[in-house]
């Protein structure tokens, strides 16, 4: 069934083929992904939905090179990720992917500015340019006046916007957001979704993981996942024909 749904796209940015992921927790084996197939083109805004435990977070971790699949292949911009070295993977995460996590994952000891700068540090960007680009990214998410504030001094919505600025700062092609609104009130949720929509309009590929239908509605394409396999993929053909 999943193979029927497998989209035939010419140059997908992300392409998963029959990806499985098995975790071993103690004596128990948990199969988080069972032969998932998905292709995402550059410039798409895709929401991946599913109940908790459906494997959507694992899917995102595989997409973001935060975790490696047990079997199957994952091609990122045409390149097989399983052949990449640790250094190459670090470079991919640094330059091609921006992450937004549910728990924000900001370093509490650093100011918002330094947090946003971090990916640039690892990219080897010079200090002056780093500061300028971090300030610019924070301005883009409406937090130009919070550069010197530490995460503890910011509201949840503001912290998530700092995290989005950090995801943006290296100018990655792909932004992966894992339940970015999960810890936010409705006003902040709207802010964050508007921001992601804006970025999509600006040409970035966005993959949004959520279990809330109204959050998923922000995306043009919705992929439903259940028990580790793609169950339903809305508008992939429409998107493909529309774009292609």
């Amino acid at each position: 069934m999943t193979t029927d749904l497998f989209p035939t796209l010419e140059f997908p940015l992300l392409e998963l083929r029959g990806v499985s992921k098995t975790y071993r927790s103690g004596s128990l084996q948990v199969q988080a992904l069972r032969g998932a197939c998905i292709a995402i083109r550059e410039g798409e805004f895709v929401a991946i939905t599913g109940p908790s435990g459906s494997g959507k977070s694992t899917l995102m971790h595989v997409l973001g090179c935060l975790d490696s699949p047990t079997s199957g292949t994952y091609r990122l911009a045409g390149q097989d990720v399983s052949t990449m070295s640790e250094e190459e993977l670090a470079d991919v995460r640094n330059r091609r992917i921006g992450f937004v996590f549910q728990q924000f994952n900001l370093l509490a000891s650093l100011t918002a500015g330094r947090n946003v700068e971090l990916p640039l540090c690892y990219a080897g960007v010079r200090r002056a340019e780093r500061t300028a680009r971090a300030t610019e990214a924070l301005a883009r998410v409406g937090l130009a006046h919070r550069v010197e504030h530490r995460p503890g001094e910011l509201s949840g919505g503001q912290q998530q916007r700092v995290a989005i600025a950090r995801a943006l700062v290296t100018d990655p092609a792909l932004i992966l957001a894992d339940e970015p609104t999960g810890n936010l009130d409705s006003a902040s949720t709207t802010d964050v979704l508007d921001l992601l929509a804006e970025l999509h309009v600006a040409g970035r590929t966005i993959v949004l993981i959520t279990h809330e239908a109204d959050v998923a509605a922000a995306a043009a394409r919705t992929v439903h996942i259940l028990d580790g396999a793609i169950q339903n993929d809305s508008g992939v053909h429409q998107e493909a024909t529309h774009r292609g």
């Binding site: 973001g64 935060l66 250094e87 670090a90 470079d91 995460r93 992450f99 994952n105 370093l107 690892y122």
Partner: peptide, 16 residues
């Protein structure tokens, strides 16, 4: 270890 994971997600190599 969480911090190490985050730094790796942001592009830090094990060497760094």
């Amino acid at each position: 270890i969480r911090e190490i994971g985050l730094r790796k997600a942001l592009g830090a190599t094990p060497r760094v």
